[in-house]
């Protein structure tokens, strides 16, 4: 059963991630990203990370992708991008080559080293299933005791990012041109001031 779920979800994840990279329309890329994230969430369930599967769907599919779609619609950049032109000669070939080399190295390392993991975990793999506490309780115990300072730091991080987003996207009261002039400018960076 777990193998069947894994195969189906792996196919969904791979197809979705290829869709993100290959889609010409940014909206299609965002929808492919949703598919990938759902597949990932089911894989998390497969790996008995129940809480994180729920968080994955709520935070990623529910908030982050909606934010992406919101920005795409807000900026009106949902036009098709011409991806047949290669801006830098040889960029794609090089990128795919570098990616395949990295994948090869990573996969080799995994295959070589994961035997150690399985040896270490041979005795505890069954204990994982028979824990007295639920997944959520276990995460809470570690999070609020061992990692409580990191947890507080994430609160600071989120506050800073919210303030940064507001500062960057608000319109300046001074030193700012009217909107109708801004939209007529080309992408030439030398045209300012």
């Amino acid at each position: 059963m777990e193998a069947a779920v894994f195969i189906v979800c792996a196919a969904i994840v791979l197809a979705g991630s290829l869709g993100v990279v290959l889609a010409r329309n940014p909206v299609h890329a965002a929808l492919s990203l949703v598919g990938t994230l759902f597949g990932m969430a089911v894989l998390f369930l497969n790996l008995e990370a129940h809480f994180l599967a729920a968080v994955q769907i709520i935070v990623y599919a529910g908030a982050i992708v909606v934010l992406f779609l919101f920005v795409i619609m807000l900026l009106g950049v949902d036009r098709l991008e011409d991806i047949s032109v290669e801006p830098i000669f040889g960029q794609r070939v090089l990128a795919i080559f570098v990616g395949l080399v990295g994948f090869g190295l990573g996969a080799t390392y995994i295959v070589v080293s994961v035997a150690e993991v399985q040896n270490t975990s041979a005795g505890v793999a069954s204990a994982y299933l028979t824990r007295p506490l639920s997944n959520l309780h276990e995460i809470a115990e570690v999070l609020f005791f061992d990692y409580v300072y990191a947890f507080e730091a994430t609160a600071v991080l989120l506050t800073i990012s919210v303030v940064g987003a507001v500062v960057m996207t608000r319109r300046m009261a001074r030193n700012q041109q009217p909107e109708n002039q801004l939209t007529n400018q080309s992408s030439n960076t030398a045209s300012e001031d």
């Binding site: 994840v13 991630s17 990279v21 889609a23 940014p26 960029q91 990616g99 990295g102 295959v111 994961v114």
Partner: peptide, 26 residues
């Protein structure tokens, strides 16, 4: 193994996309 290889594949696809695509949202 299977999960880790899948993860490496997704990471590779993301990295190649980051190097190839020019739309900042993508």
């Amino acid at each position: 193994n299977s999960y880790l290889v899948l993860s490496a594949a997704v990471f590779t696809i993301g990295a190649v996309g980051l190097m190839v695509r020019r739309n900042p949202l993508i």
